[in-house]
Design a protein around this nucleic acid. Structure first.
Lengths: 258, 258
DNA sequence: CACGTTTGGTCGAATAACGCATACATTTTG
DNA sequence: CAAAATGTATGCGTTATTCGACCAAACGTG
């Protein structure tokens, strides 16, 4: 009997997570056949894994379709509670959202991407893209993403930009890797990133890092209609507010250690 | 060879999820030994499953400890994006939070418990308990919880209240099952739940259901300092706002079908 | 700082579970 | 309405998983 490739890895568990991840932003109702196609797994395996998710409560059956249940959120809840998000991070975002006069968000780098952790909107405003907890953010065309790239260890961003697929979100999106790298280098020098209408038409993002370069891979940012942030006083005020927010973030449980 | 207990269930996958769930609100840094104790699984099994989570990116290693990464949030993100939370639900909560003059939250029943799905705070205010996305809410001592019980199919709540553990959160917490059932019945009759300082001292919760009884298992609510909601005009205004919010919720993608 | 205890890591053997093929039932599609 | 697709169930060979044993490493305590 040949030895396993890696006895440290449970292939069944990996497959189970693949099935869970098959439910994504655009596919919330999936049949067994859909799951088999999307995961490339054997139909019998998919059936067993999907029924296991039903048994565990993360998925329910609606006719022939499997549907995610809100129980999946409780896994996120553990991360939040464990990191003091509800008692420290969220109140800070709420307060600074008011201070800035626009939405305030926290994102963390997670591998070769950034994840929205939480946000606060001080007042009702036109819907932009509709990011939520767990949303993945473009590292190349958002202020938060560029700031994350700018604050990574030397060389990381260069390597990332060489490998990543460049997607053009708007007419204003930079598409040349060199130009994006130049923008990242500029953000590094300035200590903040400003990205004007490259991810969403009419919307400008502004972001600052939490802590020193090479540290947490964490950034706070805001996004507003371009007309609003084109006003110098308004932009400087928002930037000032984000810097204060970032500074207060460094005192929270999430960022105190390391 | 005896037949498997249930060929539809993958016990390895179940164990893997048990390991993932071992990271909870109070335990974000766990050793292999901790995980073995908390899951009751064999140490070698725990090792392999924990290393699989590292391989998948949901957990990282810090010395001997395993720590959740923000990647876990992306599973929640799929639920949110798939249900249009960022483009419909969250903006509604933001708007009505302003309208109500206090935080507005959406919770869904998930099995024998309720899960916070999302919330908005119109303005910075004293931190209360610090619920976040994914937080589990007391069904017995919160307005949201009682409204969920009230709006379930006949008999469900009675059975639940017979079985559940009654925890006394504050001096004002009802501890008699009959008294709680009476409060639930009253919420059912009124079409809203008001819970005064039973979960958190000095805080009153107000909640209304989304849709008809026996429907979505979904509720919107707010919580404010008791002094504020003791004012009749203020309370009626908040109630009116929540009712309008609930009505608009029924037109969103999350609640339109079924 | 030494030592006992706890925890981590590895391996082999047994076996439970998986994957695949097949068959049949049910649903969907053209 | 028939064919195709999908769901469900089962047998069986294969293999991944389990668990206990053993040793190494790390930790905690006196």
């Amino acid at each position: 009997m040949p030895k396993p490739v890696n006895r440290n890895i449970s292939t069944t568990f990996v497959k189970g997570i693949q099935v869970l991840k098959a439910f994504d932003d655009d596919n919330t109702h999936l049949t067994q056949a859909d799951l088999a196609v999307r995961t490339g797994l054997d139909r019998a395996s998919v059936r067993r894994l999907a029924l296991t998710l039903v048994e565990l409560g993360y998925v329910r059956q609606a006719g022939r379709h499997f549907v995610l249940t809100p129980q999946i959120l409780t896994l996120a809840g553990s991360f939040f509670q464990g990191n003091g998000v509800g008692v420290e991070i969220q109140p800070l975002l709420n307060r600074y959202s008011e201070r800035i006069g626009g939405p305030a968000s926290l994102a963390l780098r997670d591998g070769a991407r950034a994840v929205y952790v939480c946000q606060s909107a001080a007042r009702a405003q036109p819907v932009t893209f509709g990011f939520t907890v767990g949303s993945r953010i473009s590292l190349t065309h958002s202020a938060i993403g560029r700031m994350i790239l700018a604050w990574e260890k030397t060389g990381w961003s260069e390597n990332f930009l060489q490998e990543t697929e460049i997607v053009q979100h708007t007419a204003a999106s930079l598409t040349d890797r060199g130009a994006i790298l130049k923008a990242v280098t500029e953000a590094r020098a300035l200590g903040y990133a400003l990205v004007r209408e490259e991810f969403e038409p009419g919307v400008t993002g502004l972001a600052v890092p939490i802590g020193h370069a090479g540290g947490h891979g964490a950034v706070v940012g805001t996004s507003m209609p371009t007309a609003e942030l084109d006003d110098n006083a308004r932009r400087e005020d928002a930037l000032q507010g984000l810097r204060e927010l970032a500074r207060e973030m460094t005192h929270t449980r999430m960022f105190r250690q390391s």
